[in-house]
Amino acid sequence: MDSPPFPSPAPSGSRGASNATQRWSILRRALLARSSSARALEGISSDHQIKDGTNNISRKASRGFNLIECHSLPISQLAKSLGNSLNGNENDFGQKDVYVCYKLPCRDSSKLDLVYRKEDSLELNDIEASNKYNIDTTGLVCCWPSEEVLAYYCINHLDMFRSKKVLELGSGYGLAGLVIAASTNADEVVISDGNPQVAGYIQKNISINAETFGETKVKSMILHWDKEQASEILNTFDIIVASDCTFFKQFHEGLARTVKSLLKHWQPHKPSS
Rank of each mutant, 00 (worst) to 15 (best):
L140P: 10
E128I: 12
V115L: 08
C154A: 15
Y152T: 07
K165N: 11
S121W: 05
S85I: 10
A181R: 13
L175Q: 09
Q77L: 11
S76P: 06
K80Y: 09
S146E: 12
L78Y: 00
E188D: 12
L114E: 00
K60L: 14
I155C: 15
D108C: 08
L169F: 04
M160K: 14
S171I: 09
I155W: 14
S130Q: 11
C106L: 09
L82M: 07
C143R: 03
K132F: 03
L82V: 06
A79H: 09
G172V: 09
S62V: 09
A129M: 13
K118Y: 01
N89S: 13
Y133Q: 14
P74G: 11
D113L: 02
C101R: 12
D113E: 10
T184G: 10
A79T: 04
L178S: 03
I68G: 04
K132P: 01
V115P: 02
L150S: 07
R117W: 00
A79Y: 09
L175C: 12
G170M: 10
V100F: 01
Q95H: 08
Y173G: 10
D136Q: 07
Q77K: 08
G88F: 00
S58L: 07
R59S: 11
S163V: 06
G174P: 00
P145V: 09
S72G: 13
C142N: 13
V115N: 00
A61W: 01
E90F: 02
P145L: 11
H157V: 09
G139C: 13
D97Y: 04
L112N: 00
C154V: 08
E148Q: 01
A79P: 03
A129K: 13
N87M: 04
P74A: 08
V166N: 04
E188K: 15
S62Y: 13
R107F: 05
L140G: 13
D136K: 11
S62L: 10
N87K: 14
L175A: 06
E188L: 14
L124I: 05
G139R: 10
E119T: 02
L158H: 06
D92L: 10
S110I: 03
N66E: 14
K80Q: 14
G64A: 14
N91I: 07
V100Q: 05
F161M: 11
